[in-house]
Simulated assay, not measured.
Amino acid sequence: MAQDRPTASELLAAIADFLREEATPALDKAEPRLGFQMRVAVNSLAILEREARLGPDADAAEQARLAKLLGRDGTLDELNRELARQLRTGQRDERDATLMTHLDATIADKIAIANPKWR
């Protein structure tokens, strides 16, 4: 991992800013279809930037919540598979307040990455 600046997150943000502020308006005038596709690409870059910046902390928090909820340690994937198994078998459901708190927090973190303007 690079220790110098700009960071990966800063580079992604700079690329997205350039494409949004300079390239997209030019494409909108010359070729509207490409302007639309550029906006989709810019939004994708913005998601990648937020994922690079927010994802590690969100994953760590989700893993910690799952470990507490399930009463065991494991990787994030292992813990999510165990939770899914418990949901499928009826061991847990929406009446479990701790589960619902975990799901609310996990969804909020994912939305903050995918579309922070949603809330």
Rank of each mutant, 00 (worst) to 15 (best):
M1S: 07
M1L: 10
A2D: 07
A2C: 06
Q3Y: 11
P6A: 02
T7G: 11
T7V: 12
A8N: 04
A8F: 04
S9I: 13
S9H: 10
E10K: 05
E10I: 01
L11Q: 10
L11C: 08
L11F: 07
L12T: 05
L12I: 04
L12W: 10
A13C: 15
A14R: 15
A14P: 13
I15F: 05
I15L: 06
A16K: 15
A16N: 09
A16T: 11
F18D: 13
F18L: 11
L19C: 08
E21V: 08
A23M: 08
P25A: 01
P25T: 00
A26F: 09
L27P: 03
D28P: 00
K29E: 11
K29H: 13
E31N: 14
P32M: 07
P32L: 06
R33V: 06
L34S: 00
L34M: 02
G35H: 06
R39K: 15
R39C: 10
R39P: 15
N43Q: 06
N43L: 09
S44M: 14
S44E: 13
S44I: 06
S44Q: 15
L45W: 05
L45N: 03
A46E: 14
I47Y: 12
I47W: 09
I47E: 01
L48P: 12
L48H: 09
L48F: 06
E49M: 09
R50V: 00
R50L: 00
R50I: 00
R50W: 00
E51Q: 14
E51K: 12
E51C: 11
A52K: 09
R53H: 08
L54S: 11
A58G: 08
A58F: 07
A58P: 14
D59C: 10
A61L: 01
A61Q: 06
A61F: 04
A64M: 05
A64T: 03
A64V: 03
R65P: 13
R65F: 15
R65K: 09
L66R: 01
L66F: 00
L66V: 02
A67E: 05
A67L: 07
A67S: 10
A67H: 07
A67Y: 08
L69R: 08
L70D: 01
L70N: 04
G71S: 04
D73S: 12
D73T: 07
D73P: 12
G74H: 02
T75F: 10
E78C: 06
E78A: 07
L79A: 13
N80G: 07
N80E: 05
E82K: 03
E82T: 00
L83A: 02
L83G: 07
L83N: 12
A84E: 07
R85Q: 15
Q86N: 05
L87P: 14
L87D: 13
R88I: 05
Q91V: 11
R92A: 03
R92K: 04
D93K: 03
E94Y: 14
R95W: 08
R95Y: 11
D96Y: 01
A97W: 13
A97T: 10
A97K: 15
L99F: 01
H102S: 05
L103Y: 15
L103S: 06
A105T: 03
A105W: 03
T106F: 10
I107P: 11
I107Y: 10
D109I: 00
I113V: 06
I113H: 11
P116R: 02
P116T: 02
K117S: 12
K117T: 08
K117G: 10
